[in-house]
């Protein structure tokens, strides 16, 4: 398949001798939603951080639109069209909502007016709080801001690290419906989740990670029906 926007081949990452990711191979087709699910410490976040250049490693390869991006600095990778929504939101608390959005478009030189309006149409709550310091927003609003900020970079591939972390179930639903809306705009989404149920429902393709290796791959809906997945992640009791 040549229409993969991102191809990760045999990627290994270690933190001071401890291997967090052991030879992972992942393909992300253009225009799809792909999810990585797995328990704590499975290496999900490490993979995302390595893709966008925050983590360095030498073994394996990451190809984005056919170009090797492993070992490139983060600003180069963001300029190429990959943006990360970091775990735990990581908005800039002492900047206003509008300033946060402008930082998202930092590497762009064209006009950003339309994109700000687009983000505000996705999240009307943010428009009301345009001049407010981001640190004073509620958890859900901060997550919306983090997603909006990432969209400001006009990414081709949007990566989200646990967008449902610490949010009320209703807001989690909102966030996931937004992910669908974003995807309809032909932005590919790579999603990490502990909330396997939600993630598998929206995902086209899912990868299951266990202690640094991929143990299962399949369509989202299919995995949702899989007995082993049900036992391990969806809370079905063993018989």
């Amino acid at each position: 398949m040549s229409n993969n926007i991102l191809e990760i081949n045999n990627l290994s990452v270690s933190y001071g001798g401890i291997k967090a990711v052991k030879g992972v191979t992942i393909e992300v087709p253009e225009g799809s939603i792909v999810t990585l699910i797995g328990a704590n410490g499975a290496g999900k976040s490490t993979i995302l951080r390595t893709i966008c250049g925050l983590e360095k490693t030498k073994t394996g390869s990451i190809k984005f639109l056919g170009e090797e991006i492993l070992g490139k600095p983060a600003n180069y990778i963001v300029a190429k069209g990959i943006t990360l929504v970091p775990e735990g939101r990581c908005i800039f608390p002492n900047l206003t909502v509008l300033e946060n959005l402008k930082i998202g478009a930092y590497l762009r030189k064209d006009s950003i007016e339309d994109d700000i309006n687009y983000v505000f149409s996705l999240f009307p709550r943010l428009r009301e709080r345009e001049w407010q310091l981001a640190g004073t927003l509620s958890g859900g609003e901060q997550q919306m801001l983090a997603v909006g900020r990432a969209l400001m970079a006009k990414p081709k591939l949007l990566m989200m690290d646990e967008p449902s972390l610490g949010l009320a179930p209703l807001i989690v639903k909102d966030i996931f419906s937004i992910i669908k809306t974003i995807n309809d705009r032909s932005i590919t989404v790579l999603l990490i989740e502990q909330n396997a149920n939600m993630a598998l429902q929206v995902a086209d393709i899912a990868y299951v990670l266990e202690t640094g290796s991929v143990t299962m791959t399949g369509k989202g809906r299919e995995l949702l029906e899989d007995e082993r997945i049900k036992e391990a992640y969806l809370g079905k009791k063993k018989q």
Binding site: L54, P73, P93, L95, E99, Y106
Partner: peptide, 23 residues
């Protein structure tokens, strides 16, 4: 300016700033 905004972003959260493409 935009530089100033980048400075403040680095102050608030270095990792997020780097993920936004700030060198």
């Amino acid at each position: 300016s935009t530089y100033g905004r980048a400075f403040k972003a680095i102050r608030d959260d270095e990792i997020a700033a780097e993920a936004m493409g700030i060198n």
